[in-house]
């Protein structure tokens, strides 16, 4: 419709230009309304994103190449040093895992004694960040896995430090995640020390979260670790989210002003984990006897 007009002689142009402008403007406004009101537009978006995907890969290429280069251009001594460090780290982590499996077993036994429900382990998929939303108002990143890799909307996104955000939009080979600091995001959390529950709200600045509606008398201090509470069923339970940086109690105000700093490296991480909550399995770190034991007692819990 638009391009056919190219041939029209220039006498007509200024007259028809206004009409074209108005028609296109109305169409654009209709498109906005359609996108906001009609859920099926997500499909259209996904296909349009697919068209943009090569562009995103292209933009990401320099970073990829730099990564590759720094892998290639490394001296032998550096490699040996890195290797040694990684070995040490692996040893330390292994020791921790040994302890963890014993503790999980103990935890499961205690939970059985209390008739509590089991803790669940989550499937995790590795992914990589390929783009960042250029719009400074929005804290969003683009990941290199999409609906073809069975990513789903609402999936939790983590890095090595803690929870980063959640998937909000899917295309075929990419997906878009909203970070916890986006001003439209909120995540249910609890204070690790005493289980005090709250909701951490993003406020649009890149390294700050606010806790909403915290009573003046709540037991919450600077330095407390906030972990995800798993309420709402969207985020897995027990992953670190943020650390409290300041608590201001003003007797004149109904609520305390509590600020926290995310533990995940929101604007630095490149390697990212996607946690799959859909196919939850009971905790699998247990020694065999506990697992088999648990399977037996699961059906007839009151007896045990």
């Amino acid at each position: 419709m638009v391009f056919r007009r190219c041939g029209i002689s220039s006498i007509f142009r200024s007259g028809s230009l206004k009409a074209r402008f108005v028609i296109l403007l109305v169409l654009a406004i209709a498109l906005v309304v359609l996108d906001l009101k009609w859920a099926k537009m997500n499909q259209t978006r996904a296909y349009l994103s697919l068209a943009i995907t090569p562009l995103q890969w292209l933009v990401d290429t320099p970073a990829q190449v730099a990564d590759e280069l720094s892998d290639v251009l490394i001296t032998r001594t550096q490699l040996i040093e890195e290797n040694r460090q990684l070995r040490q780290e692996a040893l330390l982590l292994k020791r921790k895992v040994l302890q963890v499996s014993a503790l999980t077993a103990e935890n499961v036994r205690l939970r059985e004694l209390l008739n509590g429900s089991q803790r669940l382990a989550n499937d995790v998929a590795l992914t990589e960040l390929i783009g960042i939303n250029p719009d400074p108002f929005q804290h969003q990143v683009v990941l290199n896995k999409g609906s073809e890799d069975e990513v789903y909307v609402g999936q939790a996104v983590l890095d090595a430090g803690g929870i980063m955000g959640q998937i909000i939009e899917l295309s075929h080979y990419t997906s878009r995640a909203m970070l916890i600091t986006d001003s439209r995001h909120a995540i249910p959390v609890e204070v690790n020390r005493n289980g005090f529950r709250s909701i951490a709200l993003g406020n649009g600045s890149v390294d700050e979260l606010e806790l909403g509606h915290v009573p003046d008398t709540a037991d919450i201090r600077e330095g407390d670790l906030l972990v995800s509470s798993g309420l709402g069923g969207r985020f897995p339970r027990g992953y670190p989210v943020a650390r409290i940086t300041s608590v201001q109690r003003d007797p004149g105000q109904t609520f305390a002003t509590v600020k926290a700093k995310p533990t995940a490296r929101l604007n630095k991480s490149r390697h990212i984990l996607l946690v799959d909550l859909s196919g939850q399995q009971p905790e699998s770190l247990l020694p065999e006897d506990v697992v088999s034991d648990e399977a037996g007692t699961d059906a007839a819990q009151p007896e045990s």
């Binding site: 402008f21 296109l24 403007l25 654009a28 406004i29 209709a30 498109l31 906005v32 359609l34 996108d35 906001l36 537009m41 259209t44 978006r45 349009l48 994103s49 068209a51 943009i52 939303n133 250029p134 719009d135 929005q138 969003q140 909000i168 939009e169 878009r176």
Partner: peptide, 18 residues
């Protein structure tokens, strides 16, 4: 294209650019 890149409702950048 810009709407998709910025992840906002389709058509907003269209209006501005128009």
């Amino acid at each position: 294209a810009l709407d998709i890149i910025k992840g906002i409702p389709l058509g907003l950048n269209v209006i501005a650019l128009l």
